[in-house]
Amino acid sequence: MERVLVWDWPTRIGHWLMALAFLVAYLTGESEEWRLVHVWAGGALAGLVAFRLFWGLVGTRHARFADFVRAPKAAWHYLTGLAGGRAEHYTGHNPAGAYAILALLGLGLAAAATGWPTYQDIGGEWLEELHEGVVNAMLAVVVVHLAGVLVGSLAHRENLPRAMVTGLKLGRRDEAIAGAALWAVPLLLVLALSCAWWLSL
C-alpha cells in the first residue's frame, strides 16, 4: 500500500468546522451573554450536517455512505478484530466508525431541531432539557469517536487525524479518488453561514 488521496476538501473542511462549531456551541450553551454566539455555532453545525448528508449521496468515493455504511455485523467483526489485534484495514471509514458518523449527524440535526425552538422560547422547559440531553449524547459519541481514532491509529500504525488534514491515507492506487472536489467548498460554507444566520433570526 501507499499514501493515496482519500478525503476530498469538502469532507476535510466540513469535518473540522463541525468539530469547531460543536465545541463553540457546547462551551457557550450555559451563558446568556454568549447566547447569540451559541445560536450561530449551532446553526452553522446544522448547515454543515445538512451538507454532509448531501455529500454522502453525491460526493467522492470514500465520502459516500454507500462506500462505508455496512451491516452491524461488519462493525462488530471490525471491533472484535481490533480487540484481538487483527483488525482489517479500510482505506475509507471503517464499519464501526461509520455508525459513529451516522450518530453524530443524527444528533447534530436533533440538537438544531430542539435548540431553535428553545431559542425562540417555544416548547418550554421540557424541550430545553431534551436539547441538553441530545447535546450531552452527542458529546458522548464525540468522546467514543476520539477514542476510536486513537485506537485505530495505533492498531493500523497510521495517523488518522493527519489524514483528515492532508487527505492522504494508506491504500491501493486504484482506491484513490480522482480529485479533491475543491469546487464544493463554497457551497459548504454558504450553507453553513446561511443556516447560522437564518436560525439566529
Score class of each variant (00 low, 15 high):
A100T: 11
G152K: 12
F22Y: 09
N136S: 12
A163K: 15
N94R: 04
A178H: 10
G171C: 07
G152F: 07
R61Y: 11
A147G: 15
L191K: 02
V135N: 08
L36W: 11
A184M: 15
D8I: 10
E33I: 03
W198S: 13
A176R: 12
L105C: 10
A137D: 09
E30C: 06
A75K: 01
G115E: 05
L36E: 08
R172H: 13
H93N: 13
T166W: 15
T166K: 14
L36S: 15
A163C: 03
A137G: 15
G124A: 12
A112T: 14
R162W: 15
A103N: 04
E128G: 15
A19N: 08
A63T: 03
L17V: 08
L188C: 00
E32K: 07
T11W: 04
F51Q: 05
I13Q: 05
T60E: 03
G148K: 14
V149S: 00
E128T: 09
A147H: 09
I13N: 00
V143I: 15
A66C: 11
F68L: 01
M138I: 07
V6L: 01
L187A: 05
M18N: 13
T11A: 13
G47R: 10
D174K: 01
T114I: 12
A46E: 11
T80R: 13
V149C: 07
L104Q: 03
E125T: 13
L160Y: 10
G133L: 07
L102W: 06
Q120P: 01
M164K: 12
